[in-house]
Nucleic acid binder design. Sequence first.
DNA 1: CCATTATATTCGTGCACTTTTATATTCGTG
DNA 2: CACGAATATAAAAGTGCACGAATATAATGG
Lengths: 114, 114
Amino acid sequence: MEIRIEDKLLIDARTLKTVREFAPSREVSERICDFMSALGDGTRLKILSALAISDMCVNDLSIGLGLNQTTVSHQLKNLRSVGLVKYRRQGKINFYSLRDKRVVTLLNLVTDLA
Amino acid sequence: MEIRIEDKLLIDARTLKTVREFAPSREVSERICDFMSALGDGTRLKILSALAISDMCVNDLSIGLGLNQTTVSHQLKNLRSVGLVKYRRQGKINFYSLRDKRVVTLLNLVTDLA
DNA sequence: CCATTATATTCGTGCACTTTTATATTCGTG
DNA sequence: CACGAATATAAAAGTGCACGAATATAATGG
């Protein structure tokens, strides 16, 4: 009679099943990771914190936060790609804002936990 | 008369002041970033999702999730260093668990947002 | 149409992080 | 004590990513 790999585990088969079912799917996991990674960077955190107060254009973010313009532009692109910010164009100026205000809630929760 | 850099901004001085005051301090920002980065990795997310179901030892995590033992060990160390998990030793076995169940709440919130 | 302002993009570089391979450590058992 | 199991650590290899310099694009004003 053969011995399955699961028989070597300390946890029971039922728990293992639950663990595997609870695990986020490949796509969901990837979305979550991208989302969290976006919040796991000092520069992006600064930008988000600023946008939590007020919509701002790239130049204001750059000068107001003391960051290079290209750096801000880069990170805004990243934040856009994971859907954290949006912008509206007005002439030659781009006004950026948070796409979902719940991000502020999230940031507060994390600040408590961290 | 001199022109200060702030005079070039579109946002008013008052808003700028608020933005700068709201910005998390260096240390807080770093803690948040570390914390979020820890959640921004597929392997660590798997481990945390598993621990959300049940305390588990390294070997069970390794086999149950299909990951190398050393990889699990490394990532558990990372998760420990940001205070996301803890463990209790029992003989030669280390049982890992979530340090704060609110992490599950956080994960659910993020899953909604992402 | 030229200059200027605001923003984006391309590209190169350096650094940090993940993973793996190999080895060490710790603990239980015969 | 010798051995095997469970875990950790060290070293090496591969990868990704943030940042900045230079350049491009787009819009406005003269």
